[in-house]
Design a protein around this nucleic acid. Sequence first.
RNA 1: CGGGAUGUAGCGCAGUCCGGUAGCGCACACGCCUGGGGGGCGUGGGGUCGCAGGUUCAAAUCCUGUCUUCCCGACCA
Length: 488
Amino acid sequence: MSKVITSRAEDYSKWYNDIVKRANMADHSAVRGCMVIKPYGFAIWENMRDQLDAMFKETGHVNASFPLFIPKSFLSKEAKHVDGFAKECAVVTHHRLMNNPDGEGIVVDPDAKLEEELIVRPTSETIIWNTYRDWIQSYRDLPLLINQWANVVRWEMKTRLFLRTAEFHWQEGHTAHATSQEAVDETVQMLNVYATFAEEYMAMPVIKGVKTANERFAGAEDTYTIEALMQDAKALQAGTSHFLGQNFAKAFDVKFANENNKEEYVWATSWGVSTRLIGGLIMTHSDDEGLVLPPKLAPTQVMIIPVPKPDETINAAVDKVMAALKAKGIRVKYDDDPKKRPGFKFAEHEMHGIPVRIAIGKRDLEKNVVEVARRDTKEKTSVPMDGIDDYIEQLLVTIQQNLFDTAAKYRDEHITKVENMEEFKSVLDGKGGFISAHWDGTSETELKIKEMTKATIRCIPLDNPKEDGQCVLTGNPSTQRVLFAKAY
RNA sequence: CGGGAUGUAGCGCAGUCCGGUAGCGCACACGCCUGGGGGGCGUGGGGUCGCAGGUUCAAAUCCUGUCUUCCCGACCA
């Protein structure tokens, strides 16, 4: 049992915070609701970002950068969009400071008021579509497939490290298409990219689905989502991909001439994932000993520890092992700090979620073996030095798969079919997780259930089988089940 | 924005009721011992006690004001 991390059973929220802090991922900053992402946390984000970026490029997208600020008037051009974001915007009103004429410090210079206030972007649809107007004239300019890596600000009332912060890092893809179908295809394609990334790299199983009108992105025709389940049986919206229809094209007057020289409004998508994924990564795999990272995203995959401390014989053996592992492209480090004891290092690297530990001591060397420990299962095995590179290479694959399988099993065990509100409430208050239930398709019912239980419809799964039934709340006819859950 | 807490060393806390010039654990620095799961002993450095006023010979402690952060609500792709 860890000496510095609160157990999940004792206090799940505290456990989460302890992991973030003890694993050196992030800290609260001096700015309300904003976090400092520390080098280790950022290294994980860089690995996620690099992989996603490669996947975006494989699907034909390119990166660009748009302004941090958005003129206030832009935001209000799409009515639903402004409704969705108005309450959480940071606003720049002045451009100059001056010495306080009445005393200490500096004050805002009242003469430096901006003609038009600037909004710190909560998302970039408006500034981007205002720009696309100038870029798109003909169907030959389409599709336009652009992504940007950026930070955005949403003035949330209640924040949590990585899961919901006032400022966060993300990517936002913004694409323009000649036809509705092409835009819908793009929306689904990017949802699939996200799902592949979540499952194959984060080892986090997700359910792909569509949001209900209530949960839809402000300004979208349809919002597709990937939903994951955390270890406390609450759902996490891990990524969204929006079919925006012609809403933004109409708001910003973006038209193109089609093959018949007829003017049409452009069809749009936008899609994003954020540093929130790191929160999902933590809550999917980690345990009471600390962070657990999937090998594909771990900044360091293998840590070698000399026992009890480095010396010439051990160092020589380590050099050989490291060279062999590096030749396989494995990210390996040697903790040769002579001042720290092995037990301390074991605990420390477990806290940081490093997937594999290799301990090398004199006893091992006499037998020409090393001790290999897995972070996911805590299993320790004595492994011959010869062929250690192949062994570790395979082990990393095994760990990656095991993390996914374990999470998928937990998730599958936490999808429960219910037929009425009694069952609904008892499952929700008991084991939690996703509740698969019939719903009559109305916003009123959805909101009523939210009010009664705090559970929302996370999504209507894409591969949902049609099934006649009766709404859990109203008894009205329904054609399919939807997934409810309490969510982050 | 309502209700409740909180603020003392980098972190976690005691001291406040009953005023007398600040302490413990961890961390940090140095030394010695130790060494296959978070070592031991010793020495040492580090604090305008959230901020601003006030009472007093004397304020972390009492009084007034103010701010911060956290929790519960409200709010929230």
